[in-house]
């Protein structure tokens, strides 16, 4: 069985609660904290002069080499746990330190714009077909 696609989500989209429970996502952030005994890591990122923290369950990707302060990409399923907020149960956790985060954001936006544009076109086409 193949897992479902992990769609790019910005960390601030996860923390704002816009993502449903159990969704497959991928996101990024700086590793600021790792608790091996609890299998919990914290990724942090800055957006609109605010810090956003995403908690990551690392049980499935252990053992891994935690480099505090480095950029990581996480790919997994969202979980809403009491008291912690949104967490991601990681299937993949890769260190990508040195990544151009601004460019990555742009690429994600580009891709989203493209899909939005295409949906609009499809909707327009469907409408014009209905009209005739």
């Amino acid at each position: 069985m193949l897992p479902s696609a992990a769609v790019f989500r910005f960390p601030w989209e996860l923390t704002s609660g816009g993502v449903q429970d159990g969704q497959s996502v991928r996101t990024f952030g700086r590793l600021v904290d790792y608790q091996p005994e609890e299998s919990m890591a914290t990724l942090s990122s800055q957006h609109a002069s605010k810090e956003h923290r995403v908690v990551v369950h690392t049980m499935f990707v252990e053992p891994f080499n935690p480099i505090l302060g480095a950029q990581y990409i996480v790919l997994g399923e969202t979980e809403n746990s009491e008291g912690v907020g949104v967490t991601v149960r990681a299937r993949v956790l890769n260190c990508v330190d040195g990544v151009n985060i601004a460019l990555l954001q742009k690429a994600i936006e580009e891709q989203r714009n493209f899909f939005r544009e295409r949906e609009h076109k499809k909707a327009d086409a469907a409408q014009s077909v209905d009209a005739t």
Partner: peptide
């Protein structure tokens, strides 16, 4: 550093 993935994402649209 994800440069391949980023350029792929930029190129496809």
């Amino acid at each position: 550093v994800m440069s391949e993935q980023i350029s792929w994402m930029m190129e496809l649209p």
